[in-house]
Each structure stands twice: as C-alpha cells, then as structure tokens.
Nucleic acid binder design. Structure first.
Length: 683
DNA sequence: TGGGTCACGGTTTTT
DNA sequence: CCGTGACCCA
C-alpha cells in the first residue's frame, strides 16, 4: 500500500494522522479538513500493520459514517480479510446487544422504538404531564445512568416523583415487550460492561484503537462507555470542535471535550486551525463572534483563501421585505450562472421558513426544505414497519396494536384495550392469545364479530410467515394483496403522496432482499430503525434549513435570516447564550464565498406581530457598529415589568447573577420574591 | 367506532 | 397562524 495519502495533508493534519498510541484530541475547526485527517489516520494505522478488526470508529450520523467509510476505504486495499468497524454509536450498541443482551436476562430479538413510539407509550401511561417533558426527563435519567429507583429517591418535587413513577412503568413496559429505545442502545451495553468485568476487558482488548467523531456532542453516558471501551489501552482519539457544540439542550456536554486532556493522561492535542472553506472576511466575523464565549479551549481559524467580498447585512421592515431582497439576490446569482444548489438560507427557528416559502413560490424560486418530516417517521411507513415487526415477532404487542385496525377492520380502542388487559394479566402476547384461543373463547373477551375478524387477521399473518420462509419475493407480492394496505389510501387526503411513500418503501425492501440474499426481514428492520435518511441532495434547488441541520455542510452563497434578539439568540427556559453564540459561529462558517445576514424590525410569529431588535451577534461579530444597550447578560434592569405564570405581574427590584442565570428580586404587588430570570417574562 | 369540533400551546432534534 | 390532542355525538 502506498502512503501517498499523507502527502496531501498539512503539518498538523499529518501530525494527527500519524499518532499511534495514547490519547489524542484533535481540535478541528470548521472547514479544517477533519474528515480527511480522521480517515487518513485510519488508513495510516492499517498501513503500518495494525489489525483492521481492532480499530473502531464511532460517529453520530449514518451520513458521517458513510462518508468516512467511503473515503477511508478508497485509501486502503479493499482485498483485506477484515474491514475496520466504522459506524454510529447506536449501531455499535445494537451490534453489542445482539451478542450480549442475554446478560440482562433478555432475548436478543428486541425491537428498537423511535421517539414517536416512545411518546405514544408514555402518553398511554400518564394523562396529566406533558409527554415531551416526561420523555426528555427519562432520557436525561438514562443518560445519567439513573435507574427508576434512584430517580424516585432523588425526586423531591411532586412533579419529579410523578415523572420517576412513569419512568418505572415505562421501563417495565419496555422489558415486558422486549423493546429498547435509542438511549437503551447506549445504556444497556454500558450496564452489561460494568456488571461483567471479564467481558469489559475482553471488549476493550478487542478494540485497541478507538476514534470518535464530533466528540463535542457526546453526552455523559457516551463518554463513560468510551472510557470503559478503552480501559485496557487508553488509545482513544477524539475529534471535535468545542466551538461547534450545539446539542447541549439534548444532553450533550461540552465538558467532555473541554476536560478531555485532564480526564485522559498524557493527551496529545493537535489543533487544526487552517480553514479551507471560507473567505478571510467571513472567518474574521466568525472569529470575532466566538471570541465572546468564555468556556472555550481557545482556537482561532486562519484563512487560507483571499479576502473576498465583504459580508452583507440586510435591514428590513418586515419578513416580506426580507424575503424580497433575498429572492432578488438569488435571481441575480442564478442569472449570473451560479447553481441553485450552492445557495442556502439558514434560520434558528423552523417557523421562519414559512414566509420564505411563500415568497419563493411567488418569485418562482425552486427550493427544498431540509430536515422536515423524515421518510421513516411517516405514519404510513411506520405502519408497514409495524406489520413487518409483527410478522417477525409474535411478542410485539406494541406493533400489533398499531396495525390491528389498519386498514380499518372495525377493531376499535375498546377491543384493543380488552385484548391488552388480557395479555397483561396472563403474560401471553396478544398475537398468541388470539392464535391459541378458539373463536368461542375469544368471543367471550371481544364479542363474536371482533373474534372472527381477529382470527382472520392472525391467519393472514401466519400465512405470510410461511410464505416468506419459502420465498421473499413471493412474500412481497402477497403482502399487499392480503391487506390492501396501499389501496386503503385511494381517494383520501394526501393519499397520492402516501401511496408514493408506500411504493418507495416496498421498492426499498425489494432491493434489500435482492442485494442481501442471505438476510431476512429482521435484519432489514434493524437497519431501518437506525436510518435517518438525510435528504438526497439531488435536484437543482436552493436549500433552506435550521442552523442545526446545516452542521457539516457548506454553501458558496449563504443567507442567515432572523438575526433578531429573541429569535437568534433564542431566549427561553434553559437557554444558554454561549450555545447560541456557537450556533452563530456554526452558521457563519457554513459560508464559502458570500455571507448575508438579515434582520427585520417586525415579524409575524405565533399569530401575532412582534417588534424586534437586531441581534447582539451582529455587533459582537463586527457586522454592525456599536453595542446595544440591552446587553446586560440577564436582559433585565431595575424597574422592568415582568410576568410570572403563578404570581402574575411584578416589578424587578434587584438583579443578582447565579451561574449562567440571573436571580431577580421581584415585587409582586407588595410581596417580594426571588425568582430565576428564566421563570418570568418581560413585558 | 370514528368523524367532527374546540381549546391549547408553540426552540433547536444527529439516533 | 396552524397542528395536536381531548372530548362529544351519531
């Protein structure tokens, strides 16, 4: 094998790529050739004779894994006996659990549920609390390795006692139905490894070299898992950018990357600070902005490109004027020969896309909205998945309930509840309950008519199970004929679109069977559960997306709209100004040649028209001169009128800093109370 | 059982 | 404004 791939790296990249033993932190700024460096290191390790099977590379997204795999494998011989494992964290957890789930006394034919399924289950377990809150708290518990018992003990407020109770019920439900959620894919492997020292040692010895992409987005649990995995060798190489940590609200902790050199002894730190993407001018503003953050490892992007056009700032009266200006610019760009796919518009809040969409339709600009409803999240696709799950697993009550009345066959909620209750009492899954009972026995539970319908339904599924064992292709043909699933969308709203999705899904499954002759429906389902399906970047259209969705992407011409206080930085419960600023940094550094930022004086939002002030990020980045008066970090000053959900209106008397937040002393009609600023609203 | 109406609440979302 | 969920009636 040649090692030519090292020659195209700059000094720091080469330094990182040729590091072998010991912990390594690669601080890779935006556009600094991160993927190239990581993949080169992978190729380098193999080129010096390290067993590919002992190298593990973990990413967050399937897309990143795919990209890295392609690039790394193009550098190495492809006739190797084994290929290095390169996959997402969750995929790794899945593979691990397939082998070791029995250590928890559970079977390895578990089913992965997505966030939507999770919420559905939680909703059925509690009526009072908001499902979104319960879901996110449970996720936090799991990522902090807290069992329901521990959560119960720790809960002081009644609210948290309630949440911990739901958590317990939820965990029991998952166990009974042999389901795992996304967090479990990380938590359960961690549990197994911490309870089985021999296995932990063996696993760590198996993966002698571990690399982690986007390390700034890891959470506590992922970090713990990594520590366990490298406990016998300390050969952990992490790549990330503390300035691009934007998932704190989801449990990612920037501390992992900030403290990495302290947590792993003798860490070698390599900074990749040469940016190959943006003009000097763009970088200069991005650097100025991020300089306002305190919690940083400290790193400055140096441009390698020339100066470039200056960055534009658009000031408009309202969103319509804003859209008009941008539409005009886009027309000019396209008329001058630029490709629409080199143009993107970013926003902090998805709701801002609406006015853009209207305006672009009028201006005849074709656009695509990135990151909307994902293919596998669509109801009709999930229904099909549920069908296939029931086909492969009779114990899957959850999926059974989803499809028992799809298409409608007259089995309503009452009937399902009766079946569910019986199943829970007897411990026999609904499918088997129906299968094992005579029509008469079943009729006692659900009535004669329903009993007949259910028997027929079960019989169809059993038939299909037989068919798939003989021929996967015949199964595909028979499935639709049996249930008329696609046909049930004839002449209904959105039916055409839904049928197109169904066709696509059938086609996808067919292709899977053709190209993976030895694999079955179970394998397909596991694959699908972890697929997120990033839009295919095919057609000639301008892109619009949230800043979060833009991470890792780049555009020659970039517009950022909604640069107003309240929208960007976004303020609300638990908002973190430093994370907002990192979002600003991420968004600016998506631009290659041209950056336009835009703010308005007034915007229509949530049914109301709001007056807005320009974002502090404009002055902080040097895009507009002077600083704004409202720059006090709390945003509050003495005498401000505020509103509290319970205490009503009050006036601020005193402001005190408490960590990142401010504590306000507020006078509510004579009663003084100390309240954290995030719990009140400014009037 | 399931269609229709009303009240409510509303960041970002890699798996 | 506009999507979701709860509740009511045929």
């Amino acid at each position: 094998m040649s090692e030519n791939f090292l020659l195209s790296l700059n000094d720091s990249q080469q330094d990182a790529a040729t590091h072998i033993d010991g912990s390594l932190l690669i601080l890779a700024g935006a556009g600094s050739g991160k993927t190239k460096t990581v993949t080169s290191r992978l190729a380098y390790l193999i080129s010096i004779g390290i067993d590919p099977a002992s190298i593990l590379t973990l990413t967050f997204t399937n897309k990143a894994a795919r990209e890295m795999r392609e690039r790394a494998f193009s550098m190495i011989r492809d006739d190797m006996a084994t290929m290095p494992l390169l996959c997402t964290f969750h995929k790794f957890g899945l593979l691990f659990l397939k082998f070791h789930m029995d250590r928890l006394g559970r079977k390895n034919n578990f089913v992965i549920i997505d966030t939507d399924d999770k919420k559905r289950i939680l909703r059925s377990m509690n009526k009072e609390l908001t499902t979104a809150l319960v879901a996110s708290e449970i996720s936090k518990y799991k990522n902090s390795i807290l069992t329901p018992e521990m959560a119960k003990k720790a809960a002081e407020l009644k609210l948290y006692q309630q949440i911990a109770d739901v958590y317990e019920k939820y965990e029991n439900y998952l166990r009974e139905n042999n389901l795992v959620d996304f967090d479990d894919l990380l938590l359960l492997p961690y549990k197994i490894l911490s309870e089985n020292t021999a296995l932990a040692k063996e696993t760590s010895e198996k993966y002698q070299y571990i690399m982690v992409d986007e390390y700034q987005d890891t959470n506590e649990l992922q970090d713990k898992l990594l520590r366990t995995l490298c406990s016998t060798h300390n050969n952990l190489c992490v790549v990330g950018d503390d300035d691009q940590s934007i998932y704190g609200w989801r449990g990612a902790t920037i501390k992992n990357i900030l403290n990495f050199p302290q947590n792993f002894k003798d860490t070698k730190v390599v900074k990749l600070e040469k940016n190959y993407r943006s003009t000097h001018t763009i970088l200069d503003h991005a650097n100025q902005l991020i300089d306002h953050n305190r919690d940083r490892l400290g790193k400055k992007l140096e441009g390698t490109r020339q100066k470039g056009n200056s960055v534009k700032v658009y000031e408009s009266h309202d969103e319509n004027e804003e859209t008009r200006k941008i539409a005009e610019d886009i027309h000019k760009l396209i008329n001058s020969g630029e490709s629409a796919r080199d143009i993107a518009i970013l926003f902090r809040v998805n709701a801002l896309s609406r006015s853009l969409e209207e305006g672009f339709n009028k201006a005849k600009i074709s656009y695509k909205l990135v990151g909307g409803m994902k293919f596998y999240e669509r109801a009709e696709v999930k229904d099909l998945i549920a069908y296939f799950r029931v086909l492969t697993n009779k114990n899957d009550n959850f999926s059974f309930k989803r499809i028992v009345n799809k298409p409608k066959r007259g089995i309503g909620k009452t009937t399902v509840d009766k079946l569910d209750a019986h199943s829970n009492n007897s411990g026999v899954p609904i499918f088997k309950l129906i299968d094992n009972s005579t029509p008469e026995e079943l009729a006692v539970i659900v009535g004669k008519k329903n009993a007949r319908t259910l028997k027929v339904f079960i019989a169809s599924i059993l038939d299909l199970r037989d068919i798939i064992r003989e021929s996967k292709m015949r199964f595909l043909d028979n499935f639709e004929d049996t249930f008329d699933f696609r046909a049930s969308y004839d002449n209904v709203p959105d039916g055409v679109e839904r049928q197109a999705n169904i066709d696509e899904f059938y086609g996808y499954l067919r292709d899977y069977f053709i190209s993976n002759g030895h694999l079955g429906l179970e394998d397909f389902l596991n694959e699908v559960a972890l697929a997120s399906e990033q839009d295919e970047m095919g057609n000639e259209a301008v892109s619009m997306m949230s800043i979060h969705a833009s991470k890792g992407l780049e555009y020659k011409h970039l517009f950022i709209i909604g640069m107003e206080e309240g929208f960007f930085p976004l303020v609300g419960d638990g908002s973190d100004i430093e994370e907002e600023r990192r979002l600003g940094y991420v968004s600016f550094t998506r631009a290659m040649d041209e950056l336009t930022v835009s703010f308005v004086h007034s915007r229509f939002y949530k049914g109301k028209r709001a007056s807005l002030l320009k974002s502090r990020f404009l002055s902080e980045s040097g895009l507009v001169k002077g600083s704004l008066k409202i720059e006090r970090s709390s945003g509050y000053k003495k005498g401000d009128l505020v509103k509290h959900k319970i205490f009503g209106m009050g006036r601020v008397q005193k402001i005190m800093k408490v960590g990142k937040e401010s504590k306000l002393t507020i006078n509510f009609g004579g009663t003084k109370r100390d309240i954290l600023s995030s719990f009140v609203e400014k009037i």
